[in-house]
């Protein structure tokens, strides 16, 4: 191996390491500096030999429509929203008494205090199904059923200024779940 090729070889390995550290750094930054939100879920426990045991998390804000009410909140689909669009879903408003939360493309409005970014994966009959990149939670072998059989599962997420969310922890039946 010539010195030039050797330098390139080292550079490629460094790029691989930087790439891995980049993922770690990005997610750690969200977890350290992001704003906290607690999302209500409906978990399902699939088993996948290749992916390891994990729970699929379906949130209240996964299915959004003008006629759907989630708890005391109401999500309003603003403007034209199509399959494949990136949407900004308000989690809370500046005016806390305002229970109508916007779902729109292009970016959140000024009245939005906290928002989460997602991608519309299906759009049918006035309902948008949205994914936020926080739909999988990996658990140790054999522990998935505990979450699946719980009465109430919430997810504490951290959200950065761009609306990207990262899972911080699970709250199962009002207690922080210890893996």
């Amino acid at each position: 191996m010539t010195p030039k090729v050797k330098r390139l070889f080292i550079a490629v390995i460094l790029v691989q390491i930087v790439f891995l550290l980049g993922i770690v750094g990005y997610r750690e930054t969200i977890l350290a500096l992001g704003r906290t939100a607690v999302l209500q879920t409906v978990p399902v426990d699939p088993r996948d030999l290749f992916k390891g045991e994990h729970v699929i998390l379906r949130y209240e804000i996964t299915t959004l429509g003008n006629q759907i009410e989630s708890g005391s909140k109401r999500y309003l689909l603003r403007g034209e929203i199509n399959e494949g669009d990136t949407v900004y879903v308000a989690i809370s408003n500046v005016d806390k008494d305002d229970f109508s939360l916007d779902v729109r493309t292009g970016g959140p409005t000024d009245r939005t205090d906290l928002f989460i970014k997602g991608r519309v994966i299906a759009r049918k009959s006035g309902i948008a199904t949205v994914e936020y990149g926080i739909e999988q939670y990996f658990v140790p072998e054999g522990r998935g059923l505990e979450i699946e059989q719980a009465d109430d599962v919430k997810v504490r997420v951290k959200i950065n200024r761009s609306g990207v969310a990262a899972i911080e922890e699970l709250i199962v039946d009002d207690e922080v779940w210890q893996p």
Binding site: F19, L20, I23, R27, K51, G133, Q136, Y137, F138, I167
Partner: peptide, 18 residues
């Protein structure tokens, strides 16, 4: 190993591995 690491790091932050 690099490939395995890409998936394991994604998994450790609960990112979708599919």
């Amino acid at each position: 190993w690099f490939g395995a690491n890409v998936f394991l790091v994604a998994q450790s932050y609960h990112l979708a591995t599919d």
